[in-house]
Amino acid sequence: MSIVYLACLLVALGAMVLLDARFRLVFWRDARRATIVLALGLVFFLVWDAAGIVLGVFARGGSRFMTGIVLAPEFPLEEVFFLLFLCYLTLVVLFGGRAVLDRRGSGARGHGSDG
């Protein structure tokens, strides 16, 4: 039993929280809306995984880096944190990309009006 994979996921989630806080992208922009969207995404993918497990499409791979804790047959604890990370990463990339494009767009408009 090892917690390496879970620890890596938690470190990555922590880094995502710091990035979010620094640039006010998701939770620091609108915490209520972010919580709802993140929860809905997580539930969607948990149901998706459950359907895949029932249909025999998904199976838990064995690894010495995982805790060995399963929440249901073929459903390891780490999967919940991976799906949470995946959903949060998607929101950060979406709003981060939007912020970059907005900044580039306002910069281009600013240069065009000077000349």
Rank of each mutant, 00 (worst) to 15 (best):
G97M: 04
V93H: 03
H111T: 05
C8N: 07
G68A: 01
C8W: 07
A39V: 07
A59F: 12
A39R: 02
V47W: 01
R109M: 14
F82W: 10
G107F: 14
R24V: 13
R64Y: 14
L84A: 15
S2C: 02
A39T: 11
G115S: 12
G68Q: 06
R98V: 10
A15R: 00
F23E: 03
I36T: 10
L9W: 01
P73V: 08
V43G: 02
V80M: 11
F85L: 14
E74Q: 14
F45R: 01
C87D: 12
G14T: 05
V26Q: 01
V47E: 03
L84M: 13
G115C: 09
L6Y: 02
V57F: 04
V26P: 01
L10E: 01
D114Y: 02
C87H: 07
A34N: 01
G115Y: 05
A51V: 15
V100W: 11
A34E: 12
H111L: 15
S2D: 14
L10G: 00
A12T: 06
L42M: 03
A15W: 07
V4S: 10
G112A: 14
G68V: 07
F58H: 13
I3A: 09
A12G: 11
T67R: 11
A39Q: 10
L94M: 05
A15Q: 02
F95H: 13
A15P: 00
G52K: 00
V93C: 08
V54F: 11
D30F: 09
L89Q: 12
S106C: 05
G107A: 14
R24P: 00
A59E: 09
G97C: 03
F82I: 12
A59Q: 11
D49R: 03
F44G: 06
W28C: 07
L46D: 08
L94D: 04
G41R: 06
L13F: 07
V70S: 13
C87P: 01
I69Q: 04
R104E: 08
T90A: 15
G61H: 11
M1F: 09
L10I: 10
A108T: 07
R33F: 12
L18T: 08
V70Y: 15
G105D: 08
L10R: 02
P76Y: 07
S113P: 00
L101K: 06
T90D: 00
L46V: 15
Y88C: 02
G112T: 03
F65E: 09
I69E: 05
R33I: 03
A99E: 14
A72M: 14
C87S: 14
R32P: 00
G52W: 06
F85C: 09
L71V: 10
G96F: 10
R33W: 03
P76L: 06
A12M: 09
H111E: 10
A7N: 04
A108R: 14
G110H: 12
R24K: 08
A72R: 09
G62E: 15
E79R: 01
L71N: 08
F65M: 12
A72I: 03
V70W: 07
A21N: 09
L18D: 02
V4A: 08
M66C: 13
F58E: 06
R103H: 11
H111I: 13
G105N: 13
L89T: 10
L38D: 03
R60M: 05
F44L: 08
F95C: 05
S63Q: 05
R32I: 03
R104P: 01
L89E: 07
P73S: 10
G110C: 08
L71E: 06
I3S: 09
L86K: 04
